[in-house]
C-alpha cells in the first residue's frame, strides 16, 4: 500500500535533487552540504531532534528558502506544502479550496471544489468560515488545498503536531490515501510512532546534516548512525559544539 512503484526494474526519475545544499541564517549554519534525490515511491519521513533542520530542509526543497550554497532542483509547479499550523484565508471552506485552484491555474468550479473537499471529508462544512474549524479540520482543509493542485510531491511539516489522536488519524488516512494514488509524500515528524505507521523510507537529520537515509524497517530495527541510535533510544542528541 505504501510503496506504489510500478516498474521495479527501471530506475525512477528523481522528482527532486539537492546537491551540496547549505542554508545559513546570519552566522548559523542551519543545513550543511545536504545531498539527496527523491524519486516516486512510498512516503519519505524526515526525522531528527528539534532544531536539527527538518523544517529548513522542507522549505529548501519546496523553494520557500534559497540555498546559501549548492543547488536545489525541483519543479515548483509540481509540489505542494502543508505547514505545521496552516493559515486559513478569511473566507469559507469552499472559497479556500477555490482560491488554491485559481492560484494553480485550474478551474475553480463547484465540481472541482466539492471533489477536493470530498477527498478530505469536509464537504459538509463547505460553507463554514474556515477560521471557525477545529485544528484537525483546518489541517484537512490545508490538505485539500494542497492536493487540489495535483502535486507530484506533497511536503508536510509536522502536520499533526498539535492534534488529538482522532484528528491525527484523519490526517494520516488522507496522507496514506494520497500516497496510494501516487503522490510522493515527504513529511517531517518527531513522532516515532507516526513515522513507523506512515514511513517507507526515513531521512534522519542531526545538527543540520543528513546523517542517515534508510528504509523505514531497517532504520527502526537497526539504525546505523550514533545520532539515530540515541534518538530512537529516547536520549537527547546534542552536538559537541553545543556542549562546549
Amino acid at each position: 500500500m505504501q510503496d506504489k512503484r510500478t516498474d521495479k526494474n527501471a530506475a525512477p526519475q528523481p522528482l527532486l535533487r539537492l546537491c551540496n545544499a547549505s542554508l545559513r541564517y546570519g552566522v548559523v549554519d542551519v543545513l550543511q552540504d545536504v545531498c539527496l534525490e527523491i524519486s516516486a515511491g512510498g512516503p519519505v519521513i524526515l526525522m531528527g531532534p528539534n532544531g536539527s533542520g527538518k523544517t529548513s530542509l522542507l522549505k529548501l526543497m519546496m523553494g520557500l528558502a534559497a540555498p546559501s550554497s549548492g543547488d536545489v532542483d525541483c519543479a515548483r509547479s509540481q509540489v505542494s506544502f502543508v505547514f505545521q499550523k496552516s493559515v486559513m484565508l478569511r473566507r469559507s471552506v469552499a472559497a479556500n479550496v477555490a482560491f488554491a485552484l485559481q492560484a494553480a491555474g485550474l478551474p475553480a468550479n463547484d465540481k472541482a471544489v466539492r471533489a477536493a473537499l470530498d477527498r478530505v471529508g469536509l464537504s459538509h462544512l463547505a460553507q463554514r468560515p474556515a477560521r471557525r474549524l477545529s485544528g484537525g479540520e483546518q489541517q484537512r482543509l490545508a490538505l485539500a488545498r494542497a492536493l487540489s493542485r495535483n502535486p507530484a510531491i506533497l511536503f508536510l511539516d509536522e502536520p499533526t503536531a498539535s492534534l488529538d489522536p482522532a484528528q491525527t488519524k484523519a490526517v494520516e488516512d488522507i496522507v496514506q490515501a494520497s500516497a496510494a494514488m501516487g503522490v510522493k509524500i515527504v513529511m517531517s515528524t518527531h513522532d516515532i510512532g507516526q513515522a513507523r505507521r506512515l514511513g517507507s523510507e526515513v531521512l534522519f537529520l542531526a545538527h543540520g546534516r543528513l546523517v542517515e537515509r534508510a528504509p523505514a524497517a531497517s532504520f527502526f530495527n537497526k539504525p546505523e548512525s550514533p545520532e539515530a541510535q540515541r534518538f530512537l533510544a529516547g536520549e537527547l542528541v546534542i552536538s559537541q559544539e553545543a556542549l562546549s
Binding site: 519546496m62 523553494g63 520557500l64 515548483r76 509547479s77 505542494s80 506544502f81 505547514f83 496552516s86 493559515v87 484565508l89 482560491f99 488554491a100 485559481q102 492560484a103 494553480a104 488545498r145 493542485r149
Partner: peptide, 19 residues
C-alpha cells in the same frame, strides 16, 4: 501571516494583492 502560504501556493502577484 500569509507570505509562506501564498508562496507555497504560487499565488500570482495581482491575486495576492486582491486576496
Amino acid at each position: 501571516e500569509y507570505k509562506d502560504e501564498f508562496t507555497a501556493m504560487d499565488v500570482p502577484g495581482a491575486m495576492r494583492v486582491r486576496a
